[in-house]
């Protein structure tokens, strides 16, 4: 291992700090741009209805024990019977919904916009970093690492003699990109850009199928063991009162 390098303070003032500040600002900018570009399309009435039905069924399942079994059975039939229950999906319709989802041009457009708003600033900043700050040591990681990390941390420097813990500016950019996610979630609130893409991946496009979740909810209702809680409430009240007295 070579001795400690002496770095110019100008590197700190003109590379390290500006690079980090720019990364943060670009993150903020991207958040607002993607917020602007988000088209507020009217949600499909059918999908909203299905979502609400699922929520109602879930509520019923969660608080099933607080209603008498007769009421519970009536509600269960209302949601899950095989003819016109709300959770019952006819066989042929399932495929149809998904196909429609994929062929919807609005959806694809929205997805592409989101992706573009991610990719374009990233490419631009990477090009900017490459152009201005390529090829010198910008920072030092305060813990030792093995040689394996050299290609990751010293991207753009081709010396094999300097210690691995020294980081090139290009790699500092990558470090920033991954490490700032937490900061963004603090300063931008819940729905920052990275979270948004993850949610997009789950919800639309891949695997989100309303009829499937309807079916799952129906199964959940079918297997639930109903036991009315009210008869036991006297004991419960007794226990609570006893605890109060003692």
């Amino acid at each position: 291992m070579a001795a400690d390098l002496v770095l110019d303070t100008a590197i700190r003032d003109w590379v390290l700090i500006p690079l980090s500040v720019v990364m943060v600002l670009i993150g903020v900018l991207r958040y607002f741009v993607s917020k602007l570009m988000r088209s507020s399309q009217l949600p499909d009435a059918k999908i909203v209805k299905e979502g609400q039905v699922i929520i109602r069924a879930r509520n019923l399942r969660a608080s099933a024990n607080f209603i008498p079994s007769k009421s519970f059975r009536a509600r269960k039939a209302y949601f899950g019977n095989e003819e016109n229950g709300l959770l019952f999906v006819p066989k042929g319709q399932a495929q149809n919904a998904q196909a429609q989802m994929f062929s919807d041009p609005n959806m694809a457009m929205d997805m592409m916009k989101k992706n573009l708003s991610m990719i374009i600033p990233q490419t631009l900043t990477f090009a900017w970093v490459n152009f201005f700050f390529s090829g010198f040591v910008a920072a030092k990681i305060p813990f030792p690492l093995t040689q394996r990390f050299r290609s990751m941390l010293q991207n753009g420097i081709d010396y094999s003699t300097i210690d691995v813990s020294y980081v090139s500016s290009r790699s500092w950019y990558f470090l920033n990109m991954f490490g700032l996610r937490g900061l963004f979630s603090l300063i931008l609130g819940e729905e920052n850009a990275t979270d948004d893409t993850q949610r997009m991946m789950q919800m639309s496009g891949f695997g989100f199928d309303p009829s499937k979740s309807l079916g799952a909810e129906k199964d959940g209702l079918d297997i639930i063991q109903h036991e009315w809680a009210l008869p036991k409430f006297e004991q419960r009240a007794e226990a609570t009162l006893r605890k109060l007295i003692s």
Partner: peptide, 19 residues
């Protein structure tokens, strides 16, 4: 949180100590 920690640790350490 480890990634954020490492990033800010490195950042502050570099600014204060190595230059």
């Amino acid at each position: 949180g480890l990634m954020s920690f490492v990033l800010f640790w490195t950042f502050a350490y570099d600014i204060v100590h190595i230059f």
